[in-house]
Amino acid sequence: MKNGDFEPRIVGILCNWCSYAGADLAGISRIKYPANIRIIRVMCSGRVEPTFVLKAFAEGADGVLVSGCHPGDCHYGEGNYKAYARKVLIEKLLHQFGIEKERFKLTWVSANEGERFAQIVSEMVSEIKEIGPYRPPRERMRELQPGAGTPPAPGWLAEEELETAVAGGAVAGE
């Protein structure tokens, strides 16, 4: 799947005052960048919770970009510092969940940095194209609804492996 056809889907969560306005400016200035990002507006990057990031990945996002005002420029004073603290912990969590670091970014984009915003998106898209799509675990873990009748697929050995093991004379138990 790591080929040129892969179009990553990136969720952008942007603060209203700086980064969303910066993304607007990219538009006003007609700067072209890849259509892979889908932008969601929050008032402040301080509103962004780890839950949002994990939700995006759980829904199959290939990347998540959180962006706020530059340090010191937060419309609410200090929301972006909180976003930064959470970002550090989110990175650690994602690492444990096996999610590559390229897939999650926190950046600072001001209302006047339309070009920079476009550039950040372009870079992120090409980095994620490089590493390929993200497959959320729920695709592998059969998501069963209560009462769903489908029995789970065999678990620990793939069919072929099973046959090989039996033919090879492995014995159940010791």
Binding site: T51, L54, R86, V88
Partner: peptide, 19 residues
């Protein structure tokens, strides 16, 4: 609460905020 761990991570990280 949708994700227990994520909510915990949010509050714990925020207590350690620094400029």
């Amino acid at each position: 609460v949708v994700d227990h761990g994520a909510k915990l991570a949010a509050v714990i990280a925020t207590t350690a905020t620094s400029k």
